[in-house]
């Protein structure tokens, strides 16, 4: 029997199947993973999508010290390009500290950063192409964290700049751990396709059409066939039906394997929950957590937290910057 992708009246995604959520991996290739999540509430599927897009920690170049730059590109232009270079982030979640939380150092150290150096000079009459492969890791970590991801057949990696005869680039980069919520350069996934109810049986969308919506609107055939041949037109409308099959098409940037992104996504979500349970337990135990003395604003910290907030990002000490968003 075809799986319809929706649950009927009064049924809710979590109740219908005693077996609970179900996952089917449909397609995997380098940097891509296509899977279907079934018997799962829309809310949870969407949380997973959001977390995989923006909250998985990875490593990216964050600080660039330019010693010499006689290329045609301004320093900040280069710094931006360097930031966007994908660096291997396998095991970053557990193997690397956030610099702002690292207690081992005042500024940064090998436990919370990776240093990469670039020194190239063009001495030939032809232009010299500078690639990500020219970045040399300085302090040798035993793992590969922070190594530029190179996946092209020539083994070059992304092109950084072009140098003319006599031009030189000499700089050192400090790569740090972060999440895409602060800056998109830390994103582990380039795009996540997310769809439910491809045949629009639930009428969650109201298509505009000239004559016939079925003919005029593109349908993802693969997803549509997964559910059933039935389209909105043949399907008896049930206003209480709930979506329960979610089609994910995860496209990674290369810093993490796609399956690792899914696992870490769930991990990050669970850590968020655990953190709140922790807060709840503290308020249960009558510690100063929970209810604040004035009954509204959180109690001001007794200790001077100034050092914890030294603003270094454009966000300063606000939301995503220094206060440990994503720091557990």
């Amino acid at each position: 029997m075809a799986y319809y992708g929706t649950n009927g009246y009064g049924d809710d995604a979590m109740d219908t199947e005693s077996s609970g959520p179900k996952v089917t991996v449909r397609e995997v290739e380098s940097g891509r993973c296509d899977f279907v999540l079934q018997n799962c509430p829309l809310a949870l599927a969407n949380s997973l999508r959001r977390v995989m897009l923006a909250e998985i920690p990875t490593i990216a170049i964050d600080l660039v010290e330019v010693e010499s730059n006689s290329s045609v590109l301004p320093d900040e232009f280069l710094a931006h390009r360097l930031g966007l270079i994908p660096l291997n982030s396998m095991n970053v979640a557990s193997g690397l500290q956030y610099t702002r939380e690292c207690g081992n150092c005042d500024d940064h150290c090998e436990q919370c950063s990776v240093t990469l150096r670039l020194h190239v000079k063009c001495s030939s009459p032809e232009n010299l192409l500078v690639f990500a492969k020219d970045l040399i890791m300085v302090d040798g970590r035993t793992d590969d964290i922070g190594k530029p991801v190179i996946r092209d057949s020539a083994g070059n990696g992304p092109l950084l700049a072009k140098l003319r005869n006599g031009q030189e680039l000499k700089l050192s980069c400090i790569a740090k751990k972060g999440i895409a919520k602060e800056h998109a350069k830390w994103a582990p996934s380039a795009a996540i396709g997310f769809e439910y109810d491809p045949n629009n049986k639930l009428r969650h969308v109201d298509y505009w059409y000239e004559v016939d919506a079925k003919d005029e609107w593109p349908v993802n055939q693969k997803n549509a066939e997964w559910e059933s041949e039935e389209t909105a037109a043949d399907f008896t409308f049930n206003p209480d039906a709930q979506p329960s099959a979610f089609f994910f098409d995860l496209e990674a940037t290369g810093v993490l394997e796609p399956d690792e992104i899914v696992h870490q996504g769930v991990d990050v979500l669970q850590k968020k929950l655990a953190e709140i349970i922790n807060g709840l337990t503290r308020s249960d135990e009558g510690m100063n957590g929970g209810m604040s003395p004035d009954g509204y604003e959180p109690a001001p910290a007794e200790d001077d937290y100034a050092y914890g907030r030294g603003g270094t990002t454009p966000y300063g000490a606000t939301a995503y910057g220094q206060n440990g968003y994503g720091g557990y």
């Binding site: 503290r282 220094q322 720091g327």
Partner: peptide
């Protein structure tokens, strides 16, 4: 981690 703020 929260800069002196309570999570909950």
């Amino acid at each position: 981690l929260l800069g002196g703020l309570e999570k909950l």
